[in-house]
Amino acid sequence: MFTVLFRTIILYLLVVVSMRLMGKKQIGEMEPFELAIAIMISELASLPMQDTRISITHGVIPIITLLTLQSLLALFQLKSEKMRLLFSGKPSILIDKGKLDLKKLKDEKFNINNLMEELRMQGYYNLSDIEYAILETSGRLSVIPKTELEPVTKMDLKIKPAQESLPITLVLDGKVNFKNLIIANKDESWLNQMMKKNSVSSIKDILVAMLDSKGKFYCQLREKNK
């Protein structure tokens, strides 16, 4: 029993580290060769977990080999355009200047119903509204609408808003994050002033306090204090 537990923990940690080293990508955003390696790694890890007669090294060595292979392929793709085309392919334009490219749809095994579904999910209901639709190498569809249908931006309206920044958490679950206070160029004295301004008697009463993306102080108390 302990042998199985020990093997499972080791293989689980190895798979997690492998997936982490492969990069921060969702399954739907993986390139074909990345998805193939991810599936193979999961299969290789499951076999030694289920069958104790199989040496754990028979799972560890292939996983490390595949991880090394993936890292090398990723490096080659960074260095070579030909390698990128060979392993990842290139994007396909399914709608070009407002017209469907039936040949590209057929080549990509992408029927019109699939295309309409993808367009609806992105908020477009008519083919006549689309200038370009590009099937990316990850399998996701990028849509460029006709110019007159593009959303109006603040620049179009000649509005010059202040640039927003990332929110900074100052207090979480009753504990002050002193590192974030320094990043925000604030100190405990300022925090105490903001607490008084918001009628908060103790740090421990705060569920979360932060500077939002506009630089404003936001505070929420624990449920019991509401």
Rank of each mutant, 00 (worst) to 15 (best):
K146V: 12
E31Y: 09
N113M: 07
L47R: 07
D107R: 14
E117Y: 10
F217M: 00
D205I: 00
I95W: 07
C219S: 04
G139T: 05
I203Y: 07
L100A: 04
L21T: 02
E131K: 11
K197M: 02
K154R: 03
E136P: 03
Y132T: 07
V143T: 06
D156N: 14
T137P: 02
I168T: 11
L211A: 01
K25G: 05
Q163G: 08
K226Y: 14
N114P: 04
K106D: 10
R222S: 08
M121G: 12
L221K: 12
P151Y: 10
E118V: 04
E118K: 14
S92R: 11
I159A: 03
L94N: 09
S42D: 00
L85N: 14
L21W: 07
M83I: 15
D107E: 15
L73S: 03
K146R: 15
E148R: 12
L11V: 08
I10P: 11
E29H: 12
F6L: 15
N185I: 00
M30A: 04
I168G: 03
L47A: 06
S42T: 10
F217N: 00
S42W: 01
I95Q: 06
N192R: 13
E34K: 07
M49T: 06
L135T: 08
K82I: 14
P167W: 02
A74T: 14
V16H: 01
V4F: 14
S142D: 07
L191Q: 08
I183K: 15
I41N: 04
L102H: 12
V152A: 11
K24Q: 12
L69M: 10
A45I: 07
N198S: 09
V152E: 15
Y218W: 05
L47Q: 09
S142N: 10
F217A: 00
G215I: 03
S189K: 14
S165V: 13
L102C: 03
S202F: 13
S55T: 11
E131L: 09
M83N: 05
V60S: 02
R222A: 06
K154D: 15
L13I: 09
K97G: 02
T57I: 11
D156A: 09
K79H: 07
K104L: 08
I10W: 04
F178K: 14
L47G: 00
L115G: 09
P167E: 03
I168S: 04
T137D: 09
I134N: 06
I206L: 01
A133I: 09
E34F: 06
S142G: 09
N198V: 00
G23D: 06
Y12C: 12
G174I: 06
S55K: 11
D51S: 06
K226C: 08
T153V: 05
M121S: 09
I182V: 13
N180C: 04
L170I: 09
Q70K: 10
S189C: 04
E188H: 07
K186D: 00
G89P: 00
S71F: 14
P62Y: 03
K97C: 05
A45K: 05
E223Q: 13
Q77L: 05
I10E: 05
L69F: 12
S80K: 09
N198W: 00
I203S: 00
S18G: 05
P167Y: 02
L141D: 07
D101H: 10
N113G: 07
K160A: 04
S71T: 15
K146L: 13
